[in-house]
Simulated assay, not measured.
Amino acid sequence: MTPLIVAVTGGSASGKSTFADALRRQLTPNDVRLIGEDEYYGNHADEPGFDPQRFNFDDVAAHDHALMSEQLRKLKAGKTIHAPLYDFLTHKRLTQTREVKPADVIIVEGIHVLADPILRDLYDFSIFVDAPADIRLARRLLRDVRERGRSVESVVTQYLRTVRPMHLAHTEPGKNEADLVVTNDAAAASPELEALSPSFDRLATPAAARIKEMLAARS
């Protein structure tokens, strides 16, 4: 059976990765693969004059959507791919890759997965995780400081300089393109993922039901 490709998008730190994982759990016992758009950043650190403090990582052009669309087509054709792996400390792709085999459902998650019409044409179903800006900023601040070695000042500066304007220009319009909009307005700034899992399980239930119906119609 041709894999069902599902897109999950939303603003940076909206909870879309956690939502995608909750969706994967709810689709059991179907075979599900997760693919993150973040792994498809280009090797921008090799570009002349690259400055990670000023580079616009939130522009659509920062991602290698050509490679991403090529690999999604291969998965749809039943072929195994070797997805890239990205290092956020060096801003380069790793030499290692991740083998991804075709599955019943491929969940593609990222801020720009609905911003590119070429990618949009590959999806069978799309979901927008809508979260208030204050929650998204709080979650991003916690994540980038704890997991990516960033300073508070650099995170806030980047948010004001590129994250917010790029969200309004490229990500927010995806709300009108999505098949389903999920509102995540809980107090989701907690760093304790265990405390958030039940709420995300509830958020994912309607989407999981729709996808199961689509899978049943194909069988």
Rank of each mutant, 00 (worst) to 15 (best):
D58V: 09
P84R: 08
A208I: 06
Q26N: 06
D21G: 09
E172K: 11
V108N: 10
Q96D: 11
L160I: 06
G49N: 00
T9I: 08
H170N: 11
A216D: 10
K101V: 13
T183E: 14
G174T: 01
L94T: 13
S151Q: 00
D201S: 06
L4V: 06
K74I: 00
E194P: 03
A131V: 07
A204H: 02
N43C: 01
P132R: 12
A187Y: 10
I107F: 08
V60I: 09
V32W: 10
L67T: 13
V105K: 03
P29H: 04
E109W: 09
F200M: 00
A204S: 02
Y123D: 05
A207C: 02
N176V: 01
A131C: 14
H44K: 13
R140T: 03
D59H: 14
E70R: 12
A187P: 06
D121A: 14
D121C: 11
H170L: 10
G15I: 01
V105I: 12
A103F: 04
R140H: 04
P198R: 00
K101Y: 03
G42E: 14
L72A: 12
V145T: 05
R24G: 08
V182T: 01
F88Q: 06
R210S: 13
H63S: 15
V113M: 12
E213Q: 13
A186M: 15
F200S: 02
A22L: 08
R136I: 00
P191H: 09
P52N: 07
A83W: 05
A61F: 08
D124H: 15
A207P: 09
G149A: 02
N43T: 10
P3T: 07
A178T: 04
E37A: 12
S12A: 12
T2D: 14
N176H: 05
S69K: 15
F57P: 00
F128K: 01
N56K: 11
